[in-house]
Simulated assay, not measured.
Amino acid sequence: MESLDTVLAAHRAYLLGWNIGAAGGPDLPTYRSDVPHPPLNGVLRVAGRTPQDALAEARQRLHGVPRIWWVGPDSDAGTADGLVSLGATEVARMPIMTAVIGEAADAPTPAGLHIAETTDLDTFVPAYARVSGIPADGVPATIEREKAFTGDGTVIRLAGRLDDGQIVGTAVAWLSHGLVTLYFVGTQPEQRRQGIGAAMTSAALGLAAERGARTAALTSSPIGESVYRRLGFQPVGEFRLLTF
């Protein structure tokens, strides 16, 4: 099992792959996609900087876009409370979860669902955008950023389609730092409670294992946490997501 530091480094590397702005140094790394969706612009850690200094610099880099601060175990102790004292609002607490891929439970693929890698971003991105809350007017920019994505790893995009070709499930697997980190795991609202999200996760873990990954990581919403626990994921830390 990779260390929590490695898991966090892989997470930072993925989000920096969206960046088209000034990323800064390891004390205050930021990413800016210009997509009007807070999780796709933000601050990844604060280390060795006061909250006041960090806020002033981050505001300059991220001016004009909605953004969030990922305050987790790789930020200095007290960062979140310091930012709250400056006016930040906590929007969520998300557990950081990991699993040993070889020990993860298998999830059956629901009848009529076909899961495969896809490069068709024109259909894939709108599917995950609808589930993730990316507004319709932000979808074209998201497609362009996906096409231009760069990073020190490999992106695997998985689409779960019905027989008619409709995408009902999505997952993005990020292979970096010796592990796989999952993003945009989602199911269209009309198709929920059928095991699609678990099947998408299981398929992503299988492909990652074929490419040498032994550890999987993700950040979970409250809705998804029970599903991931059943598959074998356990919490190893937490992000406090803040916004101004």
Rank of each mutant, 00 (worst) to 15 (best):
I167P: 10
V227P: 00
V172P: 03
A129M: 04
A105L: 10
L162K: 07
A198V: 07
A10N: 15
T119F: 00
R240D: 12
P26S: 15
I143T: 09
T123P: 00
A22Q: 13
P51D: 06
F149D: 01
I156C: 01
G138S: 12
V46Q: 07
V100L: 06
Y14R: 08
I134Q: 04
Y128W: 15
G21T: 03
A171Y: 01
I101K: 02
G78T: 07
L205M: 15
V168M: 04
R93Y: 01
I143Q: 11
E2Q: 11
I101D: 09
L207Q: 14
V236Y: 07
S176V: 11
F244R: 10
Q194K: 14
W70T: 03
L162F: 00
A173H: 11
R32F: 10
R230T: 09
S221A: 02
G24W: 09
N19R: 06
A111I: 09
G160A: 04
P110R: 09
P235M: 06
R161E: 09
A111G: 11
R161G: 01
I167D: 10
F239K: 01
R67E: 13
R32W: 09
Q60K: 07
G25C: 04
E238V: 11
Y228C: 01
I115S: 05
A99Y: 03
L205G: 08
A141C: 02
A80Y: 05
D120T: 02
G133W: 05
L205T: 03
R49K: 12
T215H: 09
N41L: 08
Y228Q: 04
T79I: 10
A203N: 07
A77S: 14
A141Q: 14
M94H: 11
Q188H: 13
S221E: 01
L241E: 13
Q166P: 00
P108L: 10
L242G: 14
V185S: 05
A127G: 03
Y14N: 11
M1A: 12
G153F: 05
A209E: 14
Y183S: 10
Q194S: 04
R67M: 14
V172M: 12
I96Y: 01
G237P: 06
T118G: 05
Q166A: 14
G21D: 10
P235N: 07
L231K: 05
Y128I: 00
I115V: 15
V65C: 08
V131M: 13
Y183T: 04
Q60C: 00
S85Y: 00
P73G: 11
I196N: 08
V131P: 01
P135H: 06
I134F: 02
